[in-house]
Amino acid sequence: MEIRIDDLTGKEVAQLLQEHHQDMLDHTPAESVHSLDISGLKAPDVTFWSAWIEGELAGCGAIKVIESGHAELKSMRTSSTHLRQGVAQRLLTYIITAAQQQGITKMSLETGTPDSFIPAQKLYRDFGFNECAPFADYCEDPYSLYMTKELG
């Protein structure tokens, strides 16, 4: 698998992000969906990666710097054709290492609470993320689960 910083100009990436956003809307009320659109992912405080297997987009993920040393994991998504093949684990490992190289010592995230988010919740717990209070601009929301991890 090749993981690289992506400029978000490719149609495959745009389609995967649209699929990601639509999936969020299918399981969560719009006011509780916090995925970034392409312009949000192009912000200077965001680093976005795409993962490719034999020329096919396998997944993506990003970090958004919240404050010095603290970043939020954003837009983690595995392509439907690459589910259950270890893409998310490999991508998250890569992103955490890259974040540490950028001086990030704490990573937080927001994910959903409906049953469709259980695989994501399990992935994050397996990586040592623990539940926490809302961070940054988030508020208590029954559709949101907040998690954080000290990167050391």
Rank of each mutant, 00 (worst) to 15 (best):
S39F: 08
Y124T: 05
T81V: 12
I38V: 15
A71I: 04
N130T: 04
H21R: 07
K106I: 08
T9M: 15
F127L: 02
A14Y: 01
S68G: 02
L151A: 06
Y143M: 09
D6P: 01
T148A: 13
E54H: 14
Q15S: 14
R84L: 08
I118Y: 00
M24V: 10
S39V: 14
R4Y: 01
I63G: 01
Q22A: 07
G128I: 04
L17H: 06
P44N: 13
I95G: 04
Y146I: 08
S39R: 10
T81Q: 14
Y124Q: 02
D6C: 05
T93A: 08
E140Q: 15
A88K: 06
I104H: 03
Q85V: 03
I38F: 07
A99V: 03
D115W: 04
S108W: 05
G152V: 12
Q89F: 00
P134W: 10
H34Q: 14
I95F: 09
Q22N: 13
L16S: 08
S50Q: 00
T78M: 06
Y146D: 12
L91W: 06
I38D: 10
A133P: 03
L57M: 03
K42A: 11
R84S: 15
M24P: 01
I118A: 03
L83A: 03
P29R: 11
T9S: 15
L151D: 04
I96C: 03
H21W: 02
G61C: 13
G55T: 11
I53S: 13
G69N: 02
H21P: 00
K64Y: 00
E19D: 15
V33W: 01
T47E: 10
I96W: 01
R84Y: 10
M1Y: 10
Y143N: 12
C60V: 06
Y143F: 15
S35I: 07
V33T: 02
H27T: 15
Q15G: 10
K106L: 13
A58V: 01
K122I: 07
P142S: 12
I66N: 03
L36A: 12
K64G: 01
Y124D: 07
Y138C: 06
I53Q: 15
G103W: 13
C139K: 14
H34L: 14
E67F: 00
E31V: 04
G10E: 12
T81K: 14
G40I: 09
H21F: 07
C60L: 07
E2T: 11
P119R: 05
S144F: 03
A14E: 10
F135C: 09
H20R: 02
E140R: 11
K11C: 11
Q102A: 13
F48V: 12
K106N: 07
S35M: 07
F117P: 08
